[in-house]
Design a protein around this nucleic acid. Structure first.
Length: 181
DNA sequence: CGCCAGATTGACT
DNA sequence: GTCAATCTGGCGG
């Protein structure tokens, strides 16, 4: 399936991290789709390891490091193509106390409302790079969540990229307080 | 191994 | 709103 469709379908799903035996989780409320050579904002555009992973098996975690943060993506694309979905924000559900400790803040609204923030709150680092997120046994996985009605899904251009495509590829749940700024 | 751009965040005016 | 710290990844030498 193409990244654009997957990005929308991931909204409302539960992102689960098993951390020291405890469940940390949150509903995915904001995503962005990234492509291959035709996407000026994608690092896969220039080839390299990231492009290889983005062209490989779907449902694999891709951890991308930038600005001293880890950004969490899931590989998703059609056969013979390149693509991934960036998870930009989640709504905290389980293990909120532990997440606050990992993030070093008690402000619930700012706990996971950004790509770098949610990886810190869930203790996601490069050790998850290349690991599957669709397996029940995985320490980092995506489970069924709540169903999001189509009319509640907003769409905009991607955030923070210097050169975007001519079509908006950011998706978020409208009126949800946990989407990024 | 050095160089440089960048999918961010948090502090400060 | 503005600004700079800080490090990963790709590439050239």
């Amino acid at each position: 399936m193409d990244p654009e469709s997957v990005a929308q379908r991931l909204l409302g799903k539960l992102l689960v991290r098993i951390y020291q035996g405890a469940r940390l989780s949150g509903y995915i409320v904001e995503t962005e789709a990234y492509f291959g050579t035709e996407d000026p904002a994608s690092r896969a555009r220039k080839g390299g390891n990231l492009a290889k992973i983005m062209a490989g098996d779907v449902g694999i975690a891709l951890i991308y490091g930038v600005h001293r943060q880890w950004l969490f993506n899931v590989v998703a694309h059609e056969p013979e193509r390149i693509g991934a979905v960036l998870i930009r924000a989640i709504e905290p559900v389980e293990g909120i106390g532990i997440m606050k400790k990992l993030r070093g803040t008690s402000d619930l609204k700012k706990l996971t409302n950004g790509p770098g923030r949610l990886t810190k709150a869930l203790a996601i680092d490069k050790s998850f790079h290349g690991k599957p997120v669709c397996k029940q046994s995985s320490l980092l996985r995506i489970e069924e969540g709540v169903k999001i009605h189509k009319v509640l899904i907003g769409r905009s251009y991607r955030i923070g990229v210097s050169k975007d495509l001519s079509k908006p590829f950011r998706f978020y749940i409208k009126n949800n307080p946990y989407v990024s700024r």
